[in-house]
């Protein structure tokens, strides 16, 4: 049986070592390729859009390398996973770097947590919160095959200063809270994207990546 291929899109932003190593760790019959080559990406069975760093640089490289067109093509048919800035890039618009137009796959925007973020609920009520939102926070799941074998409200590792809100409630697949409610996971049809870093989220994160490689793209 020929093995399947998972392409991790390399558009020059950040460290792809972690994502590819974690995918390799959980893959049984999938070859993981880090690439920017459109042909390779379009031939792959599963595609990951990672992202680290500032939105303007990320979108700049995505457009310069034509990754936007490749992602649009992939999004029509193949299981596609966005991670962190890769998820934010799928929204309409980000207010980072003075405002950046994004890929507009999901209606909604990316906003700054703010310099004066105060917790409004739970054990930390009234406390001033640090930005970036860095560390392990809980995700409240919405039923989806990507959450298989992962307990609801499991903690995942987040590092971000900007957060996603979605216009369409149906797109929300996971909810997080840090001073405000934000979208921790978003998805529609064969596309799924997460704000946290599954590749750094221990067993829960590895399970999510394994679920992705086993996913046929049907919600």
């Amino acid at each position: 049986m020929s093995s399947k291929i998972c392409a991790v899109i390399d558009y020059g932003m950040g460290n792809l070592h972690s994502a590819s190593k974690a995918l390799e760790h959980v893959s049984k019959n999938t070859q993981v390729i880090v690439t920017s080559d459109p042909e390779t990406i379009l031939k792959a069975d599963h595609v990951v859009l990672p992202g680290v760093g500032a939105m303007r640089d990320c979108m700049g490289e995505i457009l310069r390398l034509g990754v936007d067109q490749v992602v649009a093509e992939v999004a029509k048919t193949k299981p596609l996973l966005g991670i962190c800035v890769g998820m934010q890039a799928m929204m309409d618009h980000s207010e980072e770097n003075g405002g950046v137009e994004c890929l507009k796959y999901f209606p909604g925007k990316v906003q700054f947590f703010g310099d004066n973020l105060i917790e409004t609920q739970g054990t930390q009520n009234g406390e001033k919160l640090k930005v970036p939102h860095m560390g392990w926070n809980q995700v409240q799941q919405v039923a989806h095959p990507m959450w298989q074998k992962i307990e609801d409200n499991s903690r995942f590792y987040f590092v971000h200063s900007y957060y996603v809100t979605a216009e369409n409630e149906q797109h929300i697949q996971g909810r997080g809270h840090y001073g405000k409610d934000f979208v921790a996971a978003i998805g529609q049809d064969n596309v799924f994207a997460v704000q946290f870093h599954p590749e750094k989220s221990h067993t829960a994160g590895l399970q999510l990546l394994e679920n992705f490689l086993n996913w046929d793209g049907q919600a």
Partner: peptide, 8 residues
């Protein structure tokens, strides 16, 4: 629900 304090 909230961010966990980390042990490193």
């Amino acid at each position: 629900m909230g961010l966990a304090k980390r042990i490193i």
